[in-house]
Simulated assay, not measured.
Amino acid sequence: MRLLLVEDDPMIGDSIEGGLRAENYAVDWVRDGAGAELALSTQAYDLVLLDLGLPRKQGMDVLRGLRARGLDVPVLIVTARDSTADRVQGLDAGADDYLVKPFDLDELLARIRALLRRRVSRTTSIIRHGRVVLDLASHEASLDGAAVTLSAREFAVLRALLDEPGSVVAKSVLEEKLYGWNAEVESNTIDVYVHHLRKKFGQTFIQTVRGVGYKVAAAE
């Protein structure tokens, strides 16, 4: 999952970015509202963490702008503004959730998981697909009830495929979900992860659609 973090405080931003990366999210961090608008116009994100008090353009204006353009990306406002009026204004402007600083990182992560579940109409952090089970909260996987050890990248690739069973996910999309701006990506990186996943879940579990990407069969 690729997230956009919009936060001008370097200490807070560094802490949030570190916590998100430790949970295997790809994170792009911008420090002002204009940078947020540029990022949102050039890159698809699974979720936006948006501060309100930003240089160059206020967070509320960024939020209204992206909704006016029809972008439906989930937005979690993370701000020190704690009045009821601010909460109401943020939610009415199109935010999906509102978290007041200071906050516990575990709560932030739980809210992110909830918003990502909602986006794919999932009610729990458990993904079940035939014989395979993924626990998004604990980052654990199993096959026929037996634990399967996955690297962080393998887990992320499998999650992206299971979010859209039956649909082809392009290699470029998988790369975008796994890596932020500064990461170097080898041309065969996704192929390697898919190869490892096939060894662990079966050669036919992930199907190749030549010239496009990969998919897992739709659940029966």
Rank of each mutant, 00 (worst) to 15 (best):
A85K: 12
D86L: 02
D86K: 05
D86A: 13
R87V: 05
Q89T: 14
L91R: 03
G94C: 06
A95W: 00
D96E: 15
D96Y: 04
D97V: 05
D97F: 01
P102V: 09
P102T: 07
F103D: 10
D104F: 11
L105S: 08
L105I: 11
E107M: 12
E107G: 00
A110G: 11
A110C: 06
I112C: 03
R113M: 09
R113V: 09
L115E: 01
L115R: 03
L116S: 07
R117G: 12
R118Q: 13
R118W: 07
S121I: 07
R122F: 02
T124Y: 05
S125V: 08
I127Y: 04
H129P: 10
R131K: 15
V132E: 00
V133H: 03
V133F: 05
L134D: 04
D135I: 06
D135H: 11
D135E: 09
A137D: 15
S138A: 14
H139L: 12
A141C: 09
S142C: 08
S142G: 09
D144V: 13
D144W: 07
A146K: 14
A146R: 15
A146V: 14
A146P: 10
V148H: 09
T149Q: 14
T149L: 13
T149P: 01
L150W: 03
S151T: 15
A152C: 08
E154M: 00
A156P: 01
A156T: 10
V157I: 13
L158R: 00
L158T: 01
R159C: 07
D163T: 11
E164R: 15
S167T: 12
V168K: 08
V168N: 04
V169S: 07
A170R: 12
